[in-house]
Nucleic acid binder design. Structure first.
Lengths: 355, 355
DNA sequence: TTGTATGCGTTATCAC
DNA sequence: GTGATAACGCATACAA
């Protein structure tokens, strides 16, 4: 209460800007000739306050450009209305859509997103979550299931709800994802129906990437169940990217395998692979088909048209957000979100463009 | 100091989880038999504390899984180590790269990014910045220059440093961007050198998008300076996207204009446009060239190869971050970042793939 | 309806 | 080297 009052703001003051402290509740209270408690109530529960004082207070708020100090509020409320997201290198991946969806969902409920996007190498560092916790996030969304035990321990110890995104199963916490196995079934079934027996796959690096791993495993299972064949040397692991798809397809063609179809793990890869085919040059089998998982909702625009499995990336973000919000607000035990549906979009089992 | 002590944590307790408060400084102090002040010092300036007590305190910290309460810290420090970014719909644009770069730059200096990514319609809403301010951001990065006066007023009133990204000039604040005019000069000069006189442009909607607007204006100027021609009906405005590029190019072809080259405002557009060309069907001029601005570092992987102007998107994020950090830490007047360099990447003045 | 007083968890300024 | 203690700005229970 003994707050030292600075000089009354000289309107249109000089350029000297001695970092004057933004006005606080008590500044407003002073100006409106009420107590700080009243101001606080006007702002949070206006109906409790008489019309007269309310308008008077609001005027003061306007005049001073008062903005609530979230730190102080958080300190007493034990809530920041902030959710942390831990999504490695989202800038060069399929994740922006996911993050965007998460943010939108949260923003609609007046929550703010605190983003952590470390290099893959640092993604495992528990201090990242620690930082989020220090910032006072009310909940956390993590990409994937592979996090050090310490991460989960901290989260649990702090009673901070969290979700694992892009995964369907984990003993460590609730997941929002889709069934890679069904997704694989869909493409493979499609190709099987077209008479393909030997197929190839261009996908992400299974060493680094748990999602790439699950995707490949799903394919293997689907293929095995149909007596088809996906040989080891028909699988190329690369970074997800246009250029990489191009190179990988070229590589695959040079191996002269008896494959008649190639599945791409991602639409960037697919786009690159198609380029390789359309460039021709090498001995391109007449009926080489290409199909793809559609991470970025991008493959649908490729030419020639491509059969894809639509993979619900932004839905993951949205559902993750909704789940966390439910945990944050709902009192009842929140249902763990089910696996999101995937679906096949048959456009064409494309052959190569004339080379 | 009269903090009510909850039941001592039963290790391996039941599933009942009554939201037990995370442990605080005083919990640690208690366990280590020191004062809270000492604990605080151990954590912030360990060298001030004797070896003995220091290790004792650290043990307690470990045992309790203590994490600093950022709200309390922020309250006294008047700093949150958090920077806000206001980037509309970054999920479906060229912005992820930018945001990623910004985040990385900040994270390297232990700052966290608070992301606001509203629908375009809401992007002008001053309450977004207000929210960021409430959350206590130390600085703010905004996309573009077009924000309501109120936004700038709030920022200034709070003494919060801010930058405008993807722009080079504004009376409202410091900008980080690149010169659209030079970029346009580069492509146009290139095309002129190849003998093109009449060209077309597929770009973003100038109505909504100040960047698209600047880009188009730059082209017009560059073209005019060379006696070339960019007719009104040779300009197609669309959303940035693969499909849109495809459609726009098709449209352009149908108009049977005497143009011999088309510039695309973006690599997504370029990819789509190339698809349209390679599909053939319509009467594709033999020597139709395509060049592009390379927003997503994506065009370089297209096939056929494409001459592009590399546009430094992630650099914008990085420089914006560095500028803000300088403002936050440096005491001296921080130099306003210069316009970032753009450069032409000549790959080929491509003709259409055989249709 | 409004004012008063206390506490949130931390840092920093004093003493010791 | 360490311990008390006073802010930081807000919300809220309790008085009036």
């Amino acid at each position: 209460m003994t707050r030292t009052q600075q000089e009354p703001a000289k309107t249109g003051s000089t350029s000297a800007k001695p970092t004057l402290r933004p006005s606080s509740l008590s500044d407003v209270a002073m100006l409106a000739c009420v107590s700080t408690g009243t101001v606080s109530r006007v702002l949070s529960r206006p109906e409790m306050i008489s019309e007269a004082t309310r308008t008077r207070v609001m005027e003061a708020v306007q005049r001073l450009g008062y903005v609530t100090n979230g730190a102080a509020r958080a300190l007493v409320a034990r809530r920041t209305h902030t959710v942390g997201a831990l999504v490695p290198r989202f800038g060069s991946s399929s994740f922006p859509t996911l993050v965007q969806a998460l943010e939108s969902t949260l923003a609609a409920r007046r929550y703010t997103l605190l983003l952590s996007a470390p290099e893959h190498a640092r993604a495992q560092d528990p201090s990242l979550v620690r930082t989020l916790l220090e910032r006072g996030v009310d909940a956390v969304a993590l990409l994937g299931t592979e996090h050090p035990p310490q991460t989960f321990a901290m989260l649990k110890a702090h009673g901070v709800p969290f979700v694992l995104m892009w995964a369907t199963q984990s003993q460590d916490g609730a997941c929002v994802g889709f069934d890679e196995h069904s997704a694989a079934e869909l493409v493979v079934e499609h190709l099987a129906g077209l008479g393909h027996r030997q197929i190839g796959f261009i996908g992400g690096r299974t060493g680094d990437n748990e999602r790439a791993r699950r995707r490949l495993r799903g394919l293997h299972e689907a293929v095995a169940g149909r007596g088809m064949m996906l040989g080891t040397n028909a699988v190329v692991e690369v970074e997800y990217g246009f250029r990489q798809g191009f190179t990988a397809m070229t590589e695959l063609l040079q191996r002269r395998l008896p494959i008649t179809a190639v599945i791409c793990g991602n639409d960037y890869l697919a786009a690159g692979a198609l380029s390789a085919l359309s460039r021709g040059g090498i001995d391109v089998p007449r009926q080489m088909s290409v199909a793809s998982f559609n991470d970025n909702d991008f493959a649908e625009f490729l030419h020639p048209p491509l059969t894809t499995v639509h993979v619900p990336i932004s839905e993951i973000g949205e559902q993750a957000g909704l789940y966390l919000l439910a945990r944050l607000h709902g009192e009842a035990p929140v249902p763990i979100p089910a696996s999101l549906p995937v679906h096949l979009v048959v456009r064409q089992s494309t052959g190569p463009v004339a080379g």
